[in-house]
Structure formats: C-alpha cells, structure tokens
Design a protein around this nucleic acid. Structure first.
Lengths: 109, 109
DNA sequence: GCCTCGCGCAACCAAATAGTTGCATTTAAG
DNA sequence: CTTAAATGCAACTATTTGGTTGCGCGAGGC
C-alpha cells in the first residue's frame, strides 16, 4: 500500500472542498450509476456546470463515468477517498502522539 | 455529536486541498506551536503568503494562532479534521452498503 | 535609546475556477 | 425519416485565489 503522494491527496481534498461537488459525491455514494441529467436535477446550476464538476472529481480519481447509450453514467471510485481518510487518520495520530510526548516531558520533573 | 454541516466540512476539505497548506498542516501536526517565520523557513514562498494560508486554515477551524511576545504561535486544532475524517468514513460505508445491496439483488435469482 | 526582528495591513497582479450560453453530435423513440 | 433527449465542445465572463511588494508598528535585544 503506497503512502499516497501529497499532491494526489491534495487533489482529492480540493475536489471535495466545494459544496456542489461534495453534494454530488454524497449522491453518488448512494451506489449505482447516475446520468448527468439525473445529477443535474437536484441542483440549481446548469448541466454543463455539473459536467465540469464531474470532470474535476474524475481528475482527482474520486469518480468516473462511462458512456452507456446516449447517456454517460457516473459512479464513485472510493479508493482515493480511502487514501484521503487515511491521511487524516495519520494527522490525528501524529497530533495525539505529539501531545503525549509533550505531556510526558512536562511531567518529567 | 452534531453531524457537522456540509458547508463546514467542505471548508475543511478546501483548506486541505492545496499542497502548501497540506504541508503546513503536516508540519503543525508535529505538535507544539510554531511562529510564522518558522513555518515560512521550510517553504519557498513569502511570509505573507504563508500568513494568508494560515488564515485560510484558521477560517476553516483547522488551525489557530495566538500572539506571544512579538510573534504569533500557530498550532493545529484537530476537531474539524476529525469531523472531516468521519465524513469520509460515512461516504465509504454508504458506498459499501450500496454495493452489498446491489450484490444481494443480483444474486437473488 | 536605537536597532532589528516578526507581524499586520493594503494594494496590486496573474492565473485558476465556477458559472453561463450557444451550437454540434449522437442515439433512442415514434 | 424525423424528432427529441443527453451529451460534448468552445467561447466568454466574473469572482476567487495564490502570490507578490511596500510600508508601518510593536516588542525585544544590545
């Protein structure tokens, strides 16, 4: 399991760091595959705007879509999201470890 | 434990979604408090740029700094990061649950 | 007291981003 | 065959963003 390049993780965070895209991800994680028209229905922005957001998610490796008939069906790709989650876990653990060291240093009188 | 507003979580992701800021967080999670000058030393951008990034982190609730003498010491605030981590966990779980439902549906022949 | 270190504030700039509209294209439906 | 639906592509706009420079100010060090 490679530790995931910082750049890659940053791209995932950037992709999730926009309310519209976060909502899209929330819809997509319901499972299955959704067409752009379906994904646009729940928003108040244009179809092309949704398309752009989907491409941002795809570039970050968070979602992918493939053509099926006259529509393109999009679904989540949770691998990168898992990586990002692990990054946050590491941050939390390092923080707690540092707190522990600080505490034992203070107590070592 | 409130489920964390989507907007708040999105701000955290946006804050982490920039390589420089992610590095800053990585440094800060070593624990302790760092001055702006210290945090700037490891980068190749100006002190003011670092200051701006720190304010973005502060606005997202990821870090905070307080004056101490003639310098301002910054440290991590891991609460929001924990929230973001839980959000990613929920996404992963929902995805897996959906996969499970899909699988049992397919197998129900 | 003077100097310098560390910051904060403001103005400014270039690039990226979120959004739009208009039009062409492909595919399913009647 | 004709039409309508779903998408892709391109141009354009406004705002945000990441970065800079310059200057002023408070707090220590000598």
């Amino acid at each position: 399991m490679s530790p995931a390049k910082p750049q890659t993780v940053a791209r995932v965070f950037a992709a999730l760091g926009e309310p519209t895209r976060l909502k899209l991800v929330a819809v997509l994680c319901a499972g299955g595959a959704f067409s752009i028209a379906q994904l646009t229905a729940n928003t108040n922005i244009s179809r092309q705007a949704v398309t752009k957001h989907l491409h941002v998610l795809a570039d970050a490796g968070v979602a992918r879509g493939e053509k099926s008939g006259r529509e393109r069906l999009w679904q989540l790709d949770p691998a990168r999201i898992e990586e990002a989650k692990r990054t946050l876990e590491v941050i939390g653990r390092q923080w707690e470890a540092a707190l522990g060291r600080l505490k034992s240093f203070v107590e070592a009188t």
